Simulated scan of single mutants.
Amino acid sequence: MGIRLTTDRLVVRDWTPDDAEAALAVYGSTDVARWLTPVMDRVADPEAMAAVLREWARQQAELLPPRGRWAVERVEDGRVVGGLGIRPLPPYEEDLEITWQLAPAAWGHGYATEAGLALLRWVFTQDIEEVFAVARPKNDRAHAVAKRLGMRWVGETTKYYDLNLQVYRIRPADLP
């Protein structure tokens, strides 16, 4: 897809094979992975992370915008601190979900909100009317990011991923 979104502090860009070590700090972290399962298990080592990135790149080439997965890189040092995604929510794959994951060392700096807003602004240029986020009830960080993104809580459901989840929604007019 080749999007590149830039904010004051961050770049949202496609993943590359060179990102495996930095991506492992995100997707290999038990503090991150515990919120991702059953969708994605913790990645065990650099080789497995490189394989995941290769698969994401392969999938990315087949996805219609705005679907995809992207790295979040700091402008100041070029360090990848997290990832973002836009994907269809199961089981019907009609609703689009925004996802964000940051390495624990990058928590608390506003990166998820900053990168998420940049991605949502681009998503809404792609003839999309609404985007959802889902989070487990005790994932306080995810709830806080969803609210900072301008998302509104719409309820609780077991519809997605066979889990009890809190659902947030944003439409273009809701963007801060």
Rank of each mutant, 00 (worst) to 15 (best):
D174A: 06
R152H: 13
E156N: 08
R79G: 06
F124R: 14
Q126I: 02
G68D: 07
V134K: 02
L63V: 11
T157H: 08
P17V: 08
L5P: 10
R141D: 08
A103G: 12
T6I: 14
G28P: 05
V43C: 03
H109F: 13
V134A: 02
L24V: 06
T30P: 01
R136P: 00
R121C: 04
D95V: 14
I98V: 10
G110Y: 10
E21T: 12
L96N: 09
P17M: 03
P38G: 01
R79C: 06
R34L: 00
M49V: 11
G150M: 11
T99D: 13
A106N: 05
R148H: 15
D8A: 15
A112Q: 03
E130Y: 10
E130H: 09
V81K: 12
G78P: 05
L10P: 11
Y168H: 12
R74A: 08
V167K: 00
R152F: 04
V32I: 01
D45W: 02
A25Y: 02
L117C: 06
V75W: 04
I98T: 07
T37S: 11
A22F: 00
T16R: 15
R121K: 07
T113E: 04
P46F: 08
P172W: 05
Y111C: 01
L102D: 02
V32R: 11
P88W: 05
W56L: 15
V75Y: 03
M49L: 00
A57Q: 15
V131M: 08
I3V: 14
K147E: 15
V32Y: 11
R79P: 00
L64G: 13
D127G: 09
P38L: 09
E73D: 07
V43N: 02
A106S: 12
K147R: 15
V43H: 03
L175D: 01
